[in-house]
Design a protein around this nucleic acid. Structure first.
Length: 271
DNA sequence: CTTTTGACCTGACAGC
DNA sequence: TGCTGTCAGGTCAAAA
């Protein structure tokens, strides 16, 4: 579930509920996530006051006077804010109990998510170092993409998804953006010229922005309730539509494998 | 350095 | 019904 727009939505929804709140108790039920949760973490953060939230790629950063929390939702993670107590489920791995009685609860069946900590005296974190440009930043433009792809023979779709180049474009958005820009996902990155770089950047930005709108609207109370997805999936042109009719040319959407992930595209529209 | 592959996990679903 | 295999929104680490 957590794509970049969804992580952004979670941040926006979470921020007003937790900024300025104090952590009364930090309860870890199962610390074996992608990386084990530091056993010292609950003690270090008990009593801390939470500050501003930020998103970097698909990471959620939460400032506090005892250091920063770095949260990743992985493939199946979600965060909810509970207003009244509720018995924890099988995959509810940790709770942040806040001073207003609410509980921030992390659920993640596959446990690909993570919770790490950046000490107050540390500038950054190894997981954040080396992340590429944010796709919604103004610096990410056609010229940037053109320069960055010169000499790169990897497929353009894999390039889009390489976090050390561009941070936060997931499988869905790579597929959708390539469809909207008419580029075949297997095209060598270095063979995408000026014009198509411009087009691709525009497609990436508009697809993400559109999904943020869609996610934002139906995810407004995401952290309060069920963790249901937004409705951007209703706008998928190729993702998950293997064998279905292309909405643009009427041809058949195809699926191939790239980097052990499924790539969906329209052979008629994408060259 | 770049590119590819394996690994981490559970759950849902298709096919037998 | 139950078994087996495949796939899933991510991404790091190791191998090639």
């Amino acid at each position: 579930m957590p794509e970049l727009p969804e992580v952004e939505t979670v941040c926006r929804s979470l921020a007003p509920r937790i900024e300025g709140r104090r952590i009364e108790r930090f309860l870890v039920r199962n610390g074996s996530l992608r990386w084990p949760i530091d056993p010292q973490l609950p003690a270090r953060l008990a009593g801390a006051t939470l500050g501003t939230l930020h998103r970097r790629a698909k990471y959620i950063l939460i400032e506090s006077d005892a250091g920063r929390l770095l949260i990743h939702l992985g493939m199946s993670g979600s965060l909810r804010v509970l207003r009244s107590p509720e018995p924890p489920g099988k995959h509810d791995h940790y709770d942040l109990e806040l001073d207003d009685g609410s509980v921030v609860r992390f659920n993640d069946p596959r446990r690909f998510g993570s919770l790490t900590w950046i000490a107050p005296d540390r500038e950054s974190h190894p997981l954040l170092d080396g992340l590429g440009i944010e796709p919604l930043d103004s610096g990410f433009d056609g010229g940037w993409l053109y320069r960055a792809t010169r000499g790169r023979r990897t497929a353009i779709k894999l390039f889009l998804m390489d976090a050390r180049r561009i941070a936060g474009i997931g499988n869905i958005y790579a597929n959708e953006a390539l469809f909207h820009s008419g580029i075949h996902p297997r095209t060598a990155a270095t063979r995408v010229g000026h014009g198509r770089c411009e087009k691709l950047v525009t497609a990436v930005k508009s697809t993400l922005a559109r999904a943020l709108e869609a996610g934002g609207s139906s995810l407004r109370d995401f952290v309060d309730t069920t963790g249901a997805c937004g409705h951007f999936q209703l706008e998928y042109r190729v993702y998950g539509r293997d064998g279905e009719e292309c909405t643009r040319c009427g041809g058949s959407v195809r699926v191939i494998r790239q980097g052990q992930r499924s790539t969906f595209y329209c052979p008629g529209c994408q060259r």
